[in-house]
């Protein structure tokens, strides 16, 4: 067996209840359950997080504005059974890639095209689309054990180190 670093899973994080889910990176994991745990350990070492989602990287479609402009690929198979898709968009270079629309479509490509048909977004730098079926979400019942511990680890927040004050005291001596 060739040595493996396990498949990749894209990670989406909800910082606060009112904020949309944001794509934050990826983790390597052998399966979805481990991906969720790894995502928590990698991305929630410090506040703040309310929910975590993972999806296999192979199942997430990324598209840039340039790719959309250059695209000659036909839309996805229209005969496919419509499924719920989540569409993430990055409106400009400063803002993050966040969830902007949930809709039913036959494929990730057609989901994206439906959104673009709304008349906006052609110049958005980046899009990501994933089907609900491929997403694994953290269990709200486990939020406390998943996310609360990060809030109380003061020793790893830079505000816990009064170096300015200490230098001042030394200079005054």
């Amino acid at each position: 067996m060739t040595d493996t670093q396990w498949p990749r899973f894209e990670v989406f994080l909800i910082e606060e209840d009112e904020k949309p889910a944001e794509h934050v990176g990826s983790v390597h994991a052998p399966d979805a359950e481990m991906a969720l745990l790894n995502a928590r350990d990698v991305f929630v070492r410090r506040p703040r997080c309310r929910q975590l989602w993972v999806a296999p990287s192979s199942k997430v479609l990324f598209r840039t504005a340039q790719e959309l402009k250059d695209a000659t690929t036909p839309p996805g198979n229209q005969l496919e059974e419509p499924q719920p898709y989540l569409v993430f968009s990055k409106p400009n270079h400063r803002e993050p890639l966040t969830l902007s629309k949930c809709l039913s479509a036959g494929s990730a490509e057609t989901a994206l095209r439906s959104v673009l048909a709304g008349g906006y977004g052609a110049d958005y730098p980046l899009w990501a689309i994933v089907s609900e079926a491929d997403l694994t979400r953290s269990d709200p019942e486990e939020s406390e054990s998943f996310f609360e511990p990060a809030e109380s680890k003061q020793y790893k927040m830079h505000a816990d180190f009064p170096t300015g004050q200490l230098m001042k005291e030394v200079r005054q001596k």
Binding site: T4, P30, A32
Partner: peptide, 23 residues
């Protein structure tokens, strides 16, 4: 760590997507 990575991959192949995973 090689045996560990292989074992985890083997489990995923055997059990994931068959409804017998812990999730």
């Amino acid at each position: 760590g090689r045996w560990v990575r292989e074992a985890m991959a083997a489990y995923a192949e055997k059990y994931e997507g068959k409804g017998t995973s812990d999730r």
